[in-house]
Every structure is written in structure tokens, then in C-alpha cells.
Amino acid sequence: MGRFNVSNQYKAIVIGGSAGSFQGISRILSALPTDFELPIILCLHRLKHVRNGFVEALNIKSAVLLEEPEDKENIKKGKIYLAPSNYHLCVELGNTFALSTEEMVNNSRPSIDITLETAAYTYRNRLIGILLSGANKDGAWGMKKIKDRGGLTIVQEPSECMIDTMPAAALSLTPVDYVLTIGDIIEFLKELDRKYKQ
């Protein structure tokens, strides 16, 4: 039994982050097993009018190649997806993505709340939500939705965050299952992955 005693009921992982999360997310991506089982959906705040460059920057260190999904693309095992610039990234029933150019939410497009909420609606208790460093409260409400629907929630240890507004907002809005450093989030993900390979 591992340190987190995590089950293999999960179908997907969503990760949200904003200011100060790039380094943490890079560390996580570089430490993942190359055959990591679950799909990971990343919603990170990014420059709205710069379409290229971000996914390439994350791919430099990532163990698994990240992709920006297209509208109605199937969500597949073993893939890592990044919300494209200037679109909201939603998860649809039927395990596909849907993109949207709706109004900004929390001054953001992509909005972490939208990705987290739609993923929670689709995956219910089979979702893990992770929220990292950030300077606004986007993502807090989405984490609450994941928790409300029986999913598992992890927030980056605020004292480790470059800017802790985002994890702090989540912690004040909803109970979370784990408050972890990036190092421990990596351990958690590795332990989780082992569960699927036993």
C-alpha cells in the first residue's frame, strides 16, 4: 500500500494553474512515467493572443507530448491536453472536448472554473482535480464542483506557491483532500499510476 492509499476509480486528471505555476507544472510533466495511464487536462492561464509557443515550451521538459485539443476530439488514455489560447476548454458527456469562445470568466479565457466544472459534471467521482499557484480565484469554484460530485481534490501547498491566491481561494471555498508540495504531487501521481499497472 502506498502513502496515499489512492484507488484506481479515476478516469481523468485536471490541473489548473496561473501565475507562478509554470515551473511546478514543468516539474510534474518531466517526472511523469512516459506511459502514464490517465488523460491529464491542463488549463493554465496564458497570453490570450499568442496562439503558439506555450505548448512547445511545456513540451521541452514533458515526458509525454502535450497537445492542444480540437473541438469534439475524443479524450484518450495516456494523453496530456492543454487548453488552447483564447478558448474555454470544456469536457462533454461522451468523453470529448468542446471549445467555446464565450465571455471571459474571472477575467480569463481559458477559465479554469469552466474546465474543472465541465470535467466534474462528466466524470463525477472519477475525477482528480489539482490546483496550483495563481494570482486570482479562478479554479476555486471548479474545485468545489469536483468535491461536490465526489471527485478527489489536491491543492498546492500555499507556502510553496509563488502566488498563493488561487490555492487559498480554493481552500476557503471547499474541503480539499490533500494539500501537497509539487514533490508530493509527483509522488501521488506516480503512486496513482502504479495502481493502474498492477
Binding site: 470544456c90 469536457v91 458527456l93 468542446a98 467555446s100 464565450e102 469552466i114 465541465t118
Partner: peptide
């Protein structure tokens, strides 16, 4: 219509 966005609208 796509469910996720229609529901939000």
C-alpha cells in the same frame, strides 16, 4: 447544441 456550453448559456 453541445451540451456543456448550452447548459452554461
Amino acid at each position: 447544441y453541445a451540451m456543456s456550453s448550452f447548459k452554461r448559456r
